[in-house]
Design a protein around this nucleic acid. Sequence first.
DNA 1: GCAATTTGTTCAGTGGTTGAATTAAATGGG
DNA 2: CCCATTTAATTCAACCACTGAACAAATTGC
Lengths: 419, 419
Amino acid sequence: MGVVWQCQGVTSASTAGAVRQGSLRELNLAVVLRRIAAAERPPSRAEIAAGTGLTRATVSAVVDDLIAGRLVAEAEPAPRTGAGRPARGLVLAADGPAGLGLEVNVDYLAACVVDLTGAVRHHVVHRADLRPVSPADALDRLAALAAEARAAAVRDGLTLAGAALAVPGLVGDGGLVRLAPNLGWRDVDVPGILAGRPLVEPVDGIPPLVVDNEANLAALGELHAGPPCSASFLHISGEIGIGAGIVLDGVLYRGARGWSGELGHIPVHPEGRPCRCGGRGCLERYAGQEAVLAAAGLSGRELPADTAAARLADLARASDPATLTALADAGTALGVAVAGVVNLLDLDTVVLGGGYAPLAPWLAPPVVAEISRRVLTAAWSPVTVRPAALGAQSAAVGGAASVVRRIIDRPVGWLARSG
Amino acid sequence: MGVVWQCQGVTSASTAGAVRQGSLRELNLAVVLRRIAAAERPPSRAEIAAGTGLTRATVSAVVDDLIAGRLVAEAEPAPRTGAGRPARGLVLAADGPAGLGLEVNVDYLAACVVDLTGAVRHHVVHRADLRPVSPADALDRLAALAAEARAAAVRDGLTLAGAALAVPGLVGDGGLVRLAPNLGWRDVDVPGILAGRPLVEPVDGIPPLVVDNEANLAALGELHAGPPCSASFLHISGEIGIGAGIVLDGVLYRGARGWSGELGHIPVHPEGRPCRCGGRGCLERYAGQEAVLAAAGLSGRELPADTAAARLADLARASDPATLTALADAGTALGVAVAGVVNLLDLDTVVLGGGYAPLAPWLAPPVVAEISRRVLTAAWSPVTVRPAALGAQSAAVGGAASVVRRIIDRPVGWLARSG
DNA sequence: GCAATTTGTTCAGTGGTTGAATTAAATGGG
DNA sequence: CCCATTTAATTCAACCACTGAACAAATTGC
C-alpha cells in the first residue's frame, strides 16, 4: 500500500455534481449519518424522517446499511416520553472507522486516534528538539509513533481509515512542505519519505495521508472534535509564527492556493519594525512568541518553544510587571489585526489556540478592547474571544477528526470497502 | 403580490440536503444548465453527457425539459469538425427569464435588466441628489424607474423573475437597511415601503426582492456578468466609505450576520487619524473619497460623489502634482490593508471597483508594490490587481445577474411555474 | 453509392424512493 | 386484566428517473 497525497476540498470539475442513479442512496446515506452526528441526543428513525423530509421507509433502509457497515449502532432506549412504542436511539459507532492524527512540531511529535464519535481514543506524545534532526529522521520517528497508535487502535477493534499530518509551515501540491521555517524544512516531500509505510487501511475516497498546515487542522479540530461552536470563526495558533485557520459557514477556507491564514504578516504598524518577510510592522514582530519573550525580558533560545507559553503564564500569574506589560502590548497588537479581520469577515468568534491558549486570560481583554473600539458592528452583536477547547495539542486531534469527518460526509466510500 | 425579503445563501437546516425521488431530476437540470452556461461555445448533448458522466439518454431528457421551459435554445450548427452527424449546439435562451437589478446611491437611481445569458438588455439611470430626499420618496422614484425597465423587458418577451436592490449600507434581516450613512438612512424597511408594487412575476424559489449591500452585488456582477475570472477575489467599492465584496471559491461570503466586507475600517495606522467609527487610523481616513479629495486640494462638498472620481482622473491625467501625490498615498494605504487581506485569505485577484475603477491606473501600482513587499506567497505566484470589468454601475447589474444565477442554479423553480 | 462515424432518440430494465397498510411495543383507562 | 390508543418501525406494490443497448439520423470520405 503506497502513501498518496490528495488535495483536500478539491472537487473534480469534470463530473461535478452530476447525480446518477446510485448517487441517490449515496447522498441519503450522508444526510442521515450527518444528522445522527449532529444530534444532541440519539435520534430515532422517525425523528430523522421528520427532520429530513424523507420517508420512514427510506430512513429505515438507509439506517440498515449504516448499521451493517459499522458506522451506526442502536443505543439503549431513551427515557420514556409518553404513550406509544418506544423509539430506538441511533448513535455513531465507537468500534468502526477511526482517523489517525499526526503532528511534527519544533519540540515534539504526536500521534492520536479519534473515533467516529469524536472521542480521542489514544494519544502519544514524544518530546524532543527536532530542529537539529533531518526531515527523514524526524519522519522515521513519527512513523514509529504512528505504528504504536495504530496497534492500540487495532486492539480496540478500530480500523484506521486515513491519516492527517500537521506541520508548522506552508504545504503545497502533493503534500510537499514548501517551507517550515521554525523546523528548518524546505521542500520536503513528506509523502515520498513515508511511502511504503503502512499507516492505514485503504478506503475509497479517503486519502491515506493528508499533509496540512497546523493552524488549519487545529481549526478543524475546534469545529469537529470540540464542543458545538460557531460556524464562522478564526482559530489563531500563536507559536513563533502566527497562523490562523479560517472556518466560514462551517467549512475550512484554504485559499486560492491553500496558503490562507498568514495572520502573522498582517501589517499593524506599516512603517514599524522590519520583519524577516521583507515587510515592516508585521503582527509577528509585536505578538509573536519571540517578541513577547523579549519584551518580558526572557530569551527565547533558552527554553523549548513549547514551554515558553507555560513560563509566561507562570510569570503573569505571579504578576511579574514586565510580563504583564508584554502580554498587554501583544494583546493590543493582536487586537488591531483581529479587528481588521472581523471587520472584513464579520466573524462572531475568535479562538486563541496554540501557544496563545494558556495566555488567553491576559491576551483576551486587550483583544476584546480593540475589537469593541474598532469593529463597527460590535455594537449590534458581540464578538466572543475564547481559548481553544482542545488546548495545545489540537492540531493532531483536528487532523484525526478531519479524517472521520470525511467518512461522515461520504459514508459510501467506507461502506463499499467491507463489501 | 407582496414583496418579500429572503436571506440569500441560507439553506434551511431542517431538510438540508435530503435527496428525494424528484430531487434527482431537479439536481440534474441544474447540472446540465450550469454546464451550458459555463461552456465557452455551445455544447452538444453528447458533449454534456461525456463531461458530466450522465448518459446521453438522460441528457436528452433533461435538455428537452429545459427547452420546453424556455431556459435553453438550440443554436445554429457549429462549424464542421469531421465525420458524423453534426451536433446541435445548446445555448441559454435570450427570451426566457430575466433579473431586475436596482440601485439607490447618493446621487443616482438605477434599474437594469439582465437576461439568462448575462447580457444587459436595458439600463436606466436617474441622476439626482438623494441625500435630501426621504427614503419613501426615493423608493417611490425607484419604483417608477423599475416599472419603466419592466415595460421594456416585457416588450422584448422577457419575464422578470426576481429583483435585487443595491444600497450603500448595512442590511439586516428582512431587508431592513440598518444604516446607510452617506444616504442618511437608518432602519429603513425597504420591503415594507415597496410592498404592493408589482415588480416581478412570482417564481418559486426566487425572492421577489433581495436587498443587499452594494459591494456584495458588485462582486457578484464581476463573478457572473463579467468575463471569466478567478474564483476567489476581493472586489473593492471605493466610494465615500470603502466596502468590499468577498468571493471565495466562487461563492459570495456574507459573514456570520451578513455584514462582511467592512474594508474601510481596517486599521492601517493604529493610532493615526480619528475616524467617525470611534476607532483610529481606519483605511477610510486615508483612502476614502473625502480623504483623497482633501489631499488633492478639492472639497468633497462641492461636487456630486459620482463625478468626484472622474474629476480626480482628469487631474491625474493632466499630471496635477497634488492629485498624483494624493492618489499615490491612498494607493499605499489601500495596499497595506489589501496586503493583510491577501496574507490572510490567499486571494489571487483584487478588483478595484466603484469610484476606484476610473482611478485604477494610479492606484494599482502602489497597491501592487505593497502586496509584493508584504505578502509572503507573492513570490510563488503573483496577485492580479485590476479595475472592475463592469465599471461604476456594476452593483445594479450584479444584482440582476444574481437573480438569473439563482435560476441557473435551481431551474426547477422556474420550470414549475409555466407548468 | 456505401462504409464509417458521430449525434440524438427509443425502450425495456433496474435501483431507490413513495405511500399505505401492517406489525410491534409501549401507555393508560375501565 | 383486557383493550383502545398511540407512536415506531417494517413490508410491499407502485412509480419515477436513470441506465444501457439498440436504432435512426445526418454528415464525411472513399
